[in-house]
Amino acid sequence: MNQNEFVLMVAPFKDKVFRLAKRLLVSTEEAEDATQEILVKLWSKEEGLSGYSSVEAFAMTMTKNYCLDQLKSKRAGNLKIVHTNYSDSAPALDKKLEDLDTFNWVEKSIRQLPEQQRMIVQLRDIEQYEFEEIAKMLDMTESAIRVSLSRARKTIREYLIKTHNYGII
């Protein structure tokens, strides 16, 4: 496989890898680094790739594992600072403006979900994978994914209804 073939092969799913990484890692820079890492790994694996039925699913699984590892090491290494103690009670102006943007609310509500539910929402609602494919990627059963997805969607709904009502007042 030469370079052009490799670029063509990853073209359909490199954005999906990036979006999943961003969903988990939040920061764009970190997501870019993670994507870079995944693509380099794929490139160096090249000969072994033919053994996988779907390179895309394999890449998504790799992304999942890489990002979860990344999150774990970050959590172990850093002290979390809880801002609730000293934040200004009135939201800043830029914050207010941001809150007007409803898409930001949705993004925030997804960010509050546990990682597994976040991944499932990302793969199902945004990337529109079939349950069967998601099951393969995340190494879960389809019914477990359905339950998780339902829970995640309901949490998002609750969060949105709360902010929707708040927005009216």
Binding site: D15, V17, E32, T35, L39, W43, T102, F103, V106, I126
Partner: peptide, 20 residues
């Protein structure tokens, strides 16, 4: 907004070059 967001989120792209 929820369903609108899904479309917006899918439009995000990886802009860096593929490392070859």
């Amino acid at each position: 907004s929820l369903f609108g967001y899904y479309g917006v989120a899918k439009a995000q792209q990886y802009e860096k070059a593929v490392p070859v």
